[in-house]
């Protein structure tokens, strides 16, 4: 069963990574990052049961907490960019390009 869970986790991670590469909307890109974090959590929980050690669950818990903090700041940044540039597309934020 461990193998199944890990493959599901890898699949979700790959879908999230693909979304980050494909999508333009900054909020959707952010959601894809969240999906990748969730996939990692699933792997942590699976390994925690596999090796019979609770530390995996603790780490997954910390990942969740840090993700919550990250979402707060990231969404605030998106809102700020949207206010100044009237767009949530990652293509429009290119003033630091050259």
């Amino acid at each position: 069963m461990t193998t199944h869970y890990l493959i599901l986790s890898g699949l979700l991670f790959a879908i999230g990574a693909m979304g980050v590469l494909i999508r333009r909307n900054a909020i959707v890109v952010f959601m894809c990052v969240e999906l990748m974090l969730n996939a990692c959590n699933l792997a942590f929980v699976t390994f925690s049961r596999q090796v019979g050690n609770l530390e995996g669950q603790i780490i997954a818990f910390f990942v969740m907490v840090v993700a919550a903090a990250e979402v707060v700041v990231g969404l605030a940044i998106i809102v700020t960019i949207f206010r100044t540039r009237r767009s949530a597309s990652v293509d429009d934020a290119n003033l630091l390009k050259y």
């Binding site: 890990l6 493959i7 890898g10 699949l11 991670f13 790959a14 879908i15 990574a17 693909m18 590469l21 494909i22």
Partner: peptide
């Protein structure tokens, strides 16, 4: 991007 995603899935 889709190719890279599929490659990653195959790898995993």
């Amino acid at each position: 991007a889709i190719l890279a995603g599929l490659g990653f899935v195959v790898l995993i």
